[in-house]
Design a protein around this nucleic acid. Sequence first.
DNA 1: CCCCAGGCGTCCA
DNA 2: TGGACGCATGGG
Length: 210
Amino acid sequence: MTPLTLDEIYQKLSKHFGPQHWWPGDTPFEIMIGAVLTQNTNWGNVEKAINNLQAAGLLSFAAILNLPQDVLAEQIRPSGYYNMKANRLQNLLSKIEEEYGDLDCMLQQDLHSLREFLLSVKGIGPETADSIILYAAEKPIFVIDTYTHRILSHHELICPETDYNEMQELFMDSLPNETELFNEYHALLVMCGKNYCKKTKPKCAECPLS
DNA sequence: CCCCAGGCGTCCA
DNA sequence: TGGACGCATGGG
């Protein structure tokens, strides 16, 4: 049988799951912090870390930048890799301050220079960069993650060794260049991955794409 | 007890 | 360039 098209996948997921209202964060700053904290980490653990920061009154650019790194690490402990992530967060914020002065200025840059800057920051890879661009800066770029790879691979739209950039081009070459669509599509792929296309015990029979 | 989660940098061939 | 490995908590 012929593989699904990217458009058909979107239609099926959208019908099955409905609107996703992503990213789960209130402000661009909080979205950016969450994007770093969720690296290879369950979102539930990220929420615990963000709640710790919120409760301590530390969920701000200045607070996170200026906190002693070991104190920050302790606050974000539930998100895992906490020493590395404390370092990555402070490095990111200091680079933003150095390059742009503040977050709002960074978010107003054009997509290409923003992506180039983010990828130059140690600890920010393609997925984290693109998540910040799409969900915090609200500019049209398609975010790829392990779920995307697994779902495309499983439905034979790609071979397993396809890399990040190839998958991103696949989406962006065949879909209209719309922030809202890219936002919703990625959120739907994550929802589908979490519920049906898990690494172990996948529920393929119940998947809306099967 | 096991395995995994909305990655990334480093090292080594 | 690409595969292995470390980073680490909390949930199933």
